[in-house]
Amino acid sequence: MSDQTRPSRPVVEGRDDSGPVPVEYRFSHARNGTRHLVVVFANFSARDEYGFSNGVLDQVRANILWIRDLFDGGNTYYLCKDMDFGVERSVAALIARFAHALGLTADQVTMFGGSKGGTAALQFALRHGWGNALAVVPQFRIGTALHERRPAAAALMMGQVTPEKIAALDTVMPELVAGTPHRHTNVYLVTSPQDEHYGRQVAPFVDLFRDYPNFNLVFNDSPLITGHDTVTARTLPPIMGLLNLLVAGIAPRLGQVRTGGEQPGRDTAPIDALLAATERFPRPRVDFPAPGTTVPGHAVALGGLAPARPGSASG
């Protein structure tokens, strides 16, 4: 999801230097004292490397912590530089410090992001035991995704890009999902068959969640989705619905559900006829000027018929 403008809700910007790597962030207080923290991770096209910072979260009542994925001038999946995972440790420490300062328990914290931000949401929730992960179109084979599509990020994260390092990063997420002790995290994974990453980056790994008590797969098969970059926008209403439920302390159990199903080319003649027959104020008929006719600006004349309102006396 491409961000266009800064959020209108008040934010504080800061930098935490307590870990091995400095981490930049933005923070916005909850409305009316809501006891929840949403941690937001960025996708590759996020403005200023802060995800969902275009105002879409303005009405979310939680405390919101946006974490910037910009380390030494590049993106890192919030994981590593030159295979040193100090980035992950620093980000994890920052999240823990905010949750502690707010006096929140693990179940009052939601990790949220799309694309590489969705991968990060799963990574931090499952590695550190936070209550909820809302992950939109994540990638599970990080090394492959970097090597094939993001050479600059691959060089930053791996140093010298080698098959061994690609394979090592490819195992990070599958091994975490299969081996984490934090299976009681509520996981919401949003995906689509129209995402070109789906077949290689998501589908082979869904079964790793089979033992999770509350794993939910939201599958959007909308014909209006044209690829990876459009899934979030086409699924935004249910995504925001889920996020607001989690903030309210409600963790729904959806299982595997489908959304989409639009029919953009469907014939609207029947509903148009119904509207025309029951319209409260019938549309006027314009006889002249004809549609598309250029008329002088100083003298415009209109002619036609305005039907009487149903039930009123005709003149």
Rank of each mutant, 00 (worst) to 15 (best):
D3Y: 10
G249F: 09
F112P: 12
S115F: 08
D82Q: 15
F52A: 13
S53E: 03
F281R: 09
E196C: 06
V60L: 06
M157H: 05
P223W: 00
Q59M: 13
P307E: 09
R258V: 02
N214E: 03
L122F: 06
G113A: 00
L305T: 04
G261H: 00
S90K: 01
G114H: 15
G260P: 01
A306P: 08
D16R: 08
W130D: 11
G143E: 04
P138E: 01
Y77L: 10
A290L: 09
D48W: 03
M1R: 11
G113H: 00
L37N: 12
E49N: 15
M1W: 08
M158K: 04
G131L: 12
F281T: 14
R35M: 07
D84A: 05
Q108H: 13
P181L: 00
R26Q: 10
R258G: 14
Q160E: 11
P284E: 01
H100S: 15
N216S: 03
H100W: 05
L189V: 12
S312M: 09
D207I: 04
F124S: 01
V60H: 04
R150V: 09
Y198W: 12
H182M: 03
K81I: 14
R47N: 11
R9T: 11
V161K: 00
I95K: 14
A178Y: 09
R26Y: 06
A301H: 01
T180R: 02
D107C: 06
T191K: 03
M83I: 02
N132K: 15
G255R: 04
T226E: 12
P307M: 03
A248M: 01
R200Q: 09
H184N: 13
P296E: 04
G261I: 01
W130E: 11
G292H: 05
M157W: 03
D207W: 01
L243I: 03
N63C: 02
S18K: 05
R253F: 07
A42N: 12
